[in-house]
Design a protein around this nucleic acid. Structure first.
Length: 733
DNA sequence: GACCTGCTGCGGGGTG
């Protein structure tokens, strides 16, 4: 450890002393030799607040100190706010090293950018979108300015893996190496990441062409103990018309109020709508009790300054503050640690729950999680899903997977990312002016990250893009942008690969509170909840897309849009094990720890009894009245596949919470149908996708021909092989 | 029955 420290630059060592650090953290010491060697990629995987940033920058800066001719380190972050944070943290170190550090994103002033362009050196902190714009517009400047580039560092790498934006990033890094003639002598990539599942697969996600070896560093540090409780609530069967007084949610808010007031906590409420309704109820409790409000909402549709005010307040430990939030407070921004984390309604993945837990656990105190789950009261009209209490059992399963099995979801790496492929074709042509089709394929698919795209598909896509006037091909084989291509590329929204719907701005007295999706109807005089407060809509301007509001009483939060959720196989399999055993408790050295409260335990016992009575341990198809219910206890890809297969065969099938409902069908009929299907070739995922409408979900899907779109969509939504395997191994026996 | 992220160049007006 001490040896590693000795290898750092003297000024860097001085900076470490100045921080009052007596020694480096484990991952920081471990990272020094491989970064100084500069001959391989590196994945630094550790939980928040273990000093990952310094783990890279201490040796990284040591290796490049004194170099003035060109940029030495390129740091890429998914968030502008993180770039601003890192800039503040790096400035002192870089001042001591007489090294330039420059933040570069959409909010950085033109003057700062101009200064850097005249004087490119040191460290550049940038977003993928800004790097894209530099490659397209300033490739001639990048070539000399980055000629000495020694490291590329990607922060929050887990947020990129398997996404459209991550695919763009990989393509950008490959295009950069190509531009700098560094394909044979690649620039080492350092990925900083929260703890990941399946660490052995990360190197391929960091450099798909494998042109440089990769080392992975993790921390063996003893983690804070974890305290978890699941609390149950009962939703009365007869809910009054006025759902503003939703009884279970009211009880849940009372629980949060009593638990959280006086300290700092995060309440993850899953949807923006629920975030608003809980935040405003808690503010109401404060008002009724004559105490100052300390509960505030935080989500992506809230104005930036409101969010930043709350983030700043969370950092002040002496002021009790509870943020009711969506995943906006899951990663990235430095808000310090909170006393505990509350999760309202079941989380959908183990990995996001883990991230959330990481926000709790101040100085040697345990990380505390409370899950508040409402289930419906059972009556005559209750359906099978109500009886099974799927949400409660999903919550129990996810806690067990996190604590007992220490498992979490790997990213889906089967996807084609066709929308981003179209984007990168346009971007590369815009960058070079023109390129031969074979060169373009080598750059994006052979060397770059689009390895799953065949030459045949590539050619058909180019033909289609030609028809759409995105491209034009000369007789020489050179591709240039077509009229439509020029139009798309020259618009400033081109640089991002993710889709953003049109919004209305919500304004009061010239202050912007946030935004609302345009599709959702808001009426004049309507009372709404927004930003944790109550308002009346006074005016709607459809041209400027502005909703004006004034302070008022009453009202409900507006609807925001959301698409489907996806639950992994492992979660449903764990649910099946819990039901079958009739026991969810966690075994710790021959003792069983019950992490549910009385109400949750009671709700679970009722559900387990129902499961047992219906013999769901052995029965995979159940007949209730004229309907059938199919239980696979598998993830949503298999559920989707079976649902569409049954529909194709003429059944009326739909799924909810992982259970497939088949209307007006006999159990044996359904079983025979699926068995027969599995005895021959099942339709491919592409064939299943043909059955569906509304498949254009990603930003550039509108430029993809139907047959290719089916291929891309099929891989996202279905898994024919796994579905066939399930029928043969489970249903046929 | 879900969430999040980002982007330009230019012209007009105000300030020091």
């Amino acid at each position: 450890m001490i040896d590693a420290f000795a290898k750092l630059d003297r000024q860097v060592q001085k900076w470490v002393y100045k921080q009052g650090w007596t020694n480096l953290r484990e991952i920081q010491s471990k990272a020094i030799p491989p970064i100084l060697a500069c001959d391989r990629d590196l994945v630094i995987s550790a939980s928040t607040a273990e000093g990952k940033t310094e783990a890279f920058f201490l040796p990284g800066c040591s290796a490049v100190v004194g170099r003035k001719q060109a940029v030495s380190i390129l740091y890429i972050s998914p968030l502008k706010s993180l770039i601003n944070d890192q800039y503040r943290r790096l400035r002192e170190l870089c001042d001591m090293l007489d090294m330039q550090v420059t933040p570069w994103h959409g909010d950085v002033s033109q003057s700062k950018k101009k200064h850097f362009k005249r004087n490119p050196q040191g460290i550049l902190l940038i977003t993928p979108e800004s790097l894209e714009s530099l490659l397209i517009r300033e490739a001639g400047w990048i070539k000399p300015s980055f000629s000495q580039l020694k490291y590329v560092c990607v922060d929050e790498f887990h947020a990129f893996i398997g996404t459209e934006r991550g695919q763009q990033l990989l393509s950008l890094l490959n295009r950069l190496e190509h531009l700098l003639n560094r394909l044979k002598d690649p620039i080492p990539r350092i990925a900083l990441s929260a703890t990941l599942g399946e660490l052995d697969k990360v190197p391929l996600s960091l450099r798909p062409n494998g042109s440089l070896p990769c080392k992975t560093i993790t921390s063996s540090k003893f983690r804070n103990p974890i305290k978890v409780q699941v609390k149950g609530f009962v939703e009365p069967a007869e809910v009054l018309e006025d759902d503003s007084n939703n009884p279970a949610e009211h009880q849940i808010c009372r629980e949060i109020y009593q638990r959280c007031r006086g300290d700092s906590h995060l309440v993850f409420a899953v949807s923006r709508e629920r975030t608003e309704s809980i935040a405003v109820s808690l503010a109401d409790f404060c008002e009724q009790n004559g105490v100052p409000n300390e509960f505030f909402p935080h989500h992506g549709s809230l104005a930036k300054n409101l969010r930043e005010d709350l983030e700043a307040r969370l950092q002040i430990e002496t002021i009790p503050t509870t943020a009711v939030c969506t995943m906006t407070l899951e990663l990235g921004i430095d808000i310090g640690k909170v006393n505990s984390v509350v999760q309202v309604t079941a989380p959908h993945s183990v990995s996001s729950l883990r991230q959330r837990m990481g926000r709790s656990g101040r100085r040697n105190s345990p990380a505390v999680l409370q899950m508040l789950i409402a289930e419906k009261q059972i009556n005559k009209s209750s359906n099978i899903n109500d009886h099974l209490r799927l949400e409660l059992v999903q919550s129990l399963a996810i806690v067990r997977l996190m604590i007992v099995r220490k498992w979490f979801e790997p990213p889906d790496v089967r996807q084609l990312h066709l929308s981003t492929f179209v984007h990168q074709i346009l971007a590369v042509i815009a960058q070079w002016g023109s390129i031969r089709t074979d060169q373009l394929y080598v750059l994006l698919c052979d060397q770059g990250p689009f390895k799953k795209i065949s030459v045949g598909h590539y050619k058909q896509l180019l033909t289609h893009m030609g028809k759409e006037k995105l491209l034009q091909q000369f007789n020489s084989g050179e591709l240039v942008l077509g009229i439509e291509g020029e139009r798309v590329v020259n618009h400033y929204t081109f640089y991002s690969v993710f889709h953003t719907p049109i919004d209305y701005r919500v304004v009061t007295e010239n202050k912007t509170l946030g935004s609302l999706p345009a599709q959702n109807v808001i009426l004049k005089e309507q009372h709404i909840v927004f930003g944790g407060k109550r308002w009346k809509v006074t005016e709607i301007d459809d041209v400027r897309r502005v909703v004006n509001v004034v302070s008022a009483k009453g009202g409900n939060p507006p609807k925001f849009n959301g698409s489907g959720i996806s639950v992994h196989d492992a979660v449903r399999m764990e649910m099946y094990r819990i039901y079958s055993a009739g026991d969810y408790r966690i075994e710790v050295s021959s003792r069983k720890i019950d992490f549910a409260d009385d109400q949750a335990r009671h709700l679970f016992q009722e559900a387990a009894e129902f499961f047992h009575r219906a013999d769901l341990k052995n029965q995979l198809i159940v007949q209730i009245g004229t309907n059938c219910y199919l239980f696979t206890w598998m993830g949503d890809k298999i559920i989707n596949t079976l649902t569409v297969l049954l529909k194709q065969q003429g059944f009326v099938a739909s799924s909810f919470g992982g259970v497939v409902e088949i209307q007006d069908a006999a159990k044996d009929e359904v079983k025979k149908c699926l068995t027969d299907l599995a005895n021959c070739e099942l339709p491919t995922e592409t064939e299943l996708a043909r059955e569906l409408k509304n498949k254009r979900v990603d930003k550039y899907d509108r430029f993809i021909p139907e047959f290719l779109l089916n291929e891309g969509y099929g891989r996202k939504a279905f898994d024919s092989l796994a579905a066939k395997d399930w029928i043969r191994t489970r249903l046929c026996h």
